[in-house]
Amino acid sequence: MSTSDKAKVRLHVVTGKGGTGKSTVAAALALALASTGKRVLLCEVEGRQGIAQMFDVPPLPYEERRIATGLLGANGETPGEVHALHIDAESAFLEYLAMYYKLGRAGRALDRFGVIEFATTIAPGVRDVLLTGKVFEAAKTERRKGTSSKDRLGYDAIVLDAPPTGRITQFLNVNGELAGLAKVGPVKAQADTVMTLFRSPQTAVHLVTVLEEMPVQETADGIAELRAAHLPVGGVIVNLVRPRDLSSETLASITDDTVDRSAVAARLREVGVAADDAVVDGLLAEARDHAERRALEDSQRALVAGMGTATYELPRIAGGVDLGALYELAGMLREQGLA
């Protein structure tokens, strides 16, 4: 994606195989975008209240809430804000009924009887239309320059923490999902409208992976499916990258078993470690495991590089990810040019 194409993107959809840290990356990307002065909305649709946990705020209701500000700009620019929205299908359905069928109090009665949960369960395509429709509503209003901050403004950018890679094309391709359910009517019209955004230059789908065989293969498959559905692929974010503490030459000597054991023992003694044969053997065994891991990661990195997309890398954060770590990751994404 070129620099001019990036400038057009307002909706950043973040997906990835489970366990790759896609929600963490989505949160970091929202902070990175806010660091450029943008007013950003971070949305989630999977019902886990992950945003509230990451930002250490109370569980989010079905309404937009300000949760953070971006990093101070590199040139001292005033940072923007990050707002959050937890979207659930039942609340979206009630809003939809009130908007199109004027069913306010009656809609809430249906919810009490479980009708809404039943409807969205037997017709998952409708559920996805409701979830994506809410994202579209948030995205369709441009920020109005000069408007009082007390007024409700649109957003400069929206980050959607989306379903996993295996379901992302189905989730975004709401027209295809509705083909056998609704030929006409408000639901079909809403799906058509949503697709105009999802297939436009204003949208980019970013895929999060780690340097392991299954996630990388699923990323490649996801990119192929998105392109086949004419949905715009953004970049691949390689997450949880381990530090590269050993040089290629050292790794090669470990793999070839040509390491000078006496030199290793001498170095251990220099730092006050007893260097008997058992200690040296254990250390070299750990080194071989590390060399094998690095070789696997390098092979997977080469596959990612051949996917025809921009790539970004984020390190594994020692001690886990808290709010401070999210800001650290946001800074890295900004430096690499994703925001």
Rank of each mutant, 00 (worst) to 15 (best):
residue 32 A to D: 05
residue 284 L to F: 10
residue 132 T to W: 11
residue 192 D to M: 02
residue 268 L to E: 00
residue 111 D to S: 02
residue 116 I to Q: 07
residue 333 L to W: 09
residue 82 V to K: 00
residue 77 E to N: 13
residue 143 R to S: 07
residue 53 Q to M: 13
residue 116 I to F: 02
residue 332 M to S: 05
residue 164 P to N: 05
residue 282 G to I: 04
residue 19 G to H: 08
residue 49 Q to P: 08
residue 259 V to D: 10
residue 57 V to M: 05
residue 33 L to W: 15
residue 260 D to Y: 02
residue 111 D to F: 13
residue 186 P to L: 01
residue 18 G to C: 03
residue 20 T to F: 00
residue 251 L to W: 05
residue 217 Q to N: 11
residue 93 F to V: 02
residue 317 I to L: 09
residue 188 K to H: 15
residue 272 G to S: 05
residue 118 F to S: 12
residue 46 E to Q: 14
residue 26 A to V: 09
residue 172 L to C: 04
residue 311 T to G: 01
residue 326 L to K: 01
residue 267 R to E: 11
residue 144 R to Y: 08
residue 25 V to C: 12
residue 173 N to G: 11
residue 169 T to R: 01
residue 232 P to I: 03
residue 57 V to A: 03
residue 250 T to W: 02
residue 142 E to A: 01
residue 181 L to I: 11
residue 47 G to K: 07
residue 95 E to Y: 07
residue 288 R to C: 00
residue 110 L to Y: 13
residue 35 S to F: 07
residue 79 P to K: 03
residue 16 G to I: 03
residue 276 D to M: 12
residue 93 F to D: 01
residue 89 A to S: 06
residue 300 Q to V: 00
residue 128 D to C: 00
residue 83 H to M: 09
residue 170 Q to C: 06
residue 125 G to E: 09
residue 281 D to F: 10
residue 163 P to V: 05
residue 277 D to N: 06
residue 327 Y to W: 05
residue 4 S to L: 10
residue 104 G to K: 13
residue 14 V to L: 00
residue 138 A to T: 01
residue 87 I to T: 03
residue 138 A to R: 03
residue 309 T to N: 07
residue 217 Q to F: 12
residue 157 A to C: 09
residue 112 R to L: 15
residue 35 S to M: 10
residue 19 G to P: 12
residue 238 V to D: 03
residue 52 A to M: 10
residue 323 L to D: 02
residue 180 G to D: 04
residue 314 L to Y: 15
residue 216 V to Y: 01
residue 224 A to N: 08
residue 207 L to I: 08
residue 28 A to L: 13
residue 277 D to A: 08
residue 265 A to S: 08
residue 257 D to E: 11
residue 298 D to H: 11
residue 305 A to W: 14
residue 83 H to A: 14
residue 8 K to I: 04
residue 131 L to V: 05
residue 38 K to C: 06
residue 135 V to C: 01
residue 51 I to M: 03
residue 305 A to H: 03
residue 109 A to L: 10
residue 300 Q to P: 06
residue 187 V to G: 13
residue 321 V to D: 15
residue 117 E to T: 13
residue 283 L to M: 12
residue 187 V to W: 11
residue 141 T to S: 13
residue 208 V to Q: 03
residue 306 G to V: 10
residue 181 L to Q: 13
residue 103 L to M: 08
residue 151 D to L: 13
residue 84 A to G: 12
residue 37 G to W: 07
residue 152 R to Q: 06
residue 126 V to G: 10
residue 257 D to Q: 06
residue 22 K to N: 00
residue 145 K to S: 15
residue 215 P to M: 04
residue 14 V to Q: 03
residue 156 D to A: 00
residue 112 R to G: 10
residue 337 G to W: 04
residue 175 N to V: 14
residue 25 V to R: 04
residue 106 A to Y: 14
residue 31 L to Q: 10
residue 229 A to T: 06
residue 26 A to P: 13
residue 60 L to F: 10
residue 177 E to I: 11
residue 129 V to L: 00
residue 151 D to E: 10
residue 46 E to Y: 03
residue 327 Y to G: 15
residue 86 H to M: 02
residue 228 A to D: 12
residue 105 R to C: 09
residue 95 E to A: 07
residue 218 E to L: 06
residue 113 F to T: 11
residue 308 G to T: 13
residue 160 L to Q: 00
residue 16 G to V: 04
residue 213 E to S: 05
residue 230 H to K: 09
